[in-house]
């Protein structure tokens, strides 16, 4: 089974020390202090791809849209078991919405043979959760969002569990080829081995610019987008908690007092 897995490099905003500041243009954020990581859900998609490859054979192609610095996440996916990689990189791709992004990914797949395409279900930076779904429509294949369990029924179909609210799994049978937008938590993403990392450093990452995609300028970036994020703003803050001040011994003492007063300890 040949698999394509799409990975995005995102700022590690899960770290409480990471502050997000809107830049002077209002359409971007200051990137200077960010450390970058593979998007959380994409990490689970990579693991699912490698697990399927180990069980059923085939090749895994890693696809990314990003600058040269994104090679870091691509190489890590290659080190875990990916076979080849494509990186779409052109300044004209900036500000692509989910449709323009999906169009770029589709262009990278035109020369790739695949049975299954996987993305993460949601990116931690822009949170659209729409790229994989739009991509499936562009490719003309079925899809499933929030896919948490993936089982190969035969070489024509998969059994896929979609995670809904409350943790309920909606089981579906889906024909191949298809696109799965993978939810977090369905597997245990491995660490790359030293040997894998060494081998990955020798694998070629094919770079595609606008000309290589075969797309026109008005199909990518802001021009190719249907919904453009035009202005970032700082959210209005609701009423805040009463903050207990002091060093840990003081704040803990105050909290213990409050809990006692309310009969909770």
């Amino acid at each position: 089974m040949n698999i394509v897995v799409c990975v995005k490099q995102v700022p590690d905003t899960s770290d409480p020390d990471t502050e997000v500041h809107i830049d002077g243009t209002g359409k971007g954020v200051d990137q200077g202090k960010f450390s970058f990581v593979i998007n959380d859900a994409d990490n689970f998609a990579v693991e699912e791809a490698i697990l399927l490859k180990e069980k059923h054979g085939g090749e895994v192609t890693v696809v990314n849209i990003g600058p040269e610095a994104a090679n870091q996440v691509i190489r890590m996916a290659l080190a875990k078991g990916g076979d080849s990689a494509v990186r779409l990189d052109d300044e004209k791709f900036a500000y692509s919405d989910p449709v323009a992004t999906a169009r770029l990914l589709a262009s990278a797949l035109k020369d790739v043979e695949y049975d299954l395409v996987m993305t993460g279900c949601l990116a931690t930076d822009d949170g659209y959760g729409a790229v994989g779904i739009a991509l499936a429509q562009l490719l003309g294949v079925p899809h499933a969002a929030y896919a948490k369990t993936v089982e190969v029924v035969d070489d024509k179909k998969l059994k896929v569990g979609r995670e809904l609210e409350g943790g309920l799994l909606e089981m579906n049978e889906i024909e191949l080829p298809c696109v799965l937008a993978i939810q977090t938590g369905g597997n245990e993403p491995r660490y790359a081995s030293f040997k894998g990392i060494r081998e990955a450093s020798k694998k070629e990452i094919k770079v595609m610019d606008l000309a290589a995609t075969g797309l026109s300028e008005d199909q990518v970036g802001e021009a190719g987008s249907v919904a453009v994020m035009t202005q970032y703003s700082v959210p209005e803050v609701g009423e805040l908690a009463e903050i207990l001040e002091g060093d840990p011994a003081e704040t803990a003492g105050k909290l213990a007092g409050i809990l006692k007063e309310k009969g909770l300890v």
């Binding site: 919405d97 989910p98 449709v99 999906a102 279900c121 949170g127 659209y128 959760g129 729409a130 790229v131 994989g132 779904i133 739009a134 499936a136 429509q137 562009l138 899809h143 499933a144 969002a145 929030y146 979609r162 995670e163 809904l164 609210e165 909606e170 249907v226 919904a227």
Partner: peptide, 24 residues
Amino acid sequence: GNTGQGVDLVGSLAVELDLPFTTD
């Protein structure tokens, strides 16, 4: 709704009909 059902639907529906869309 931007739910387990809706997220599965919005992006592909809008692309099929070539309509502008956003999520969440």
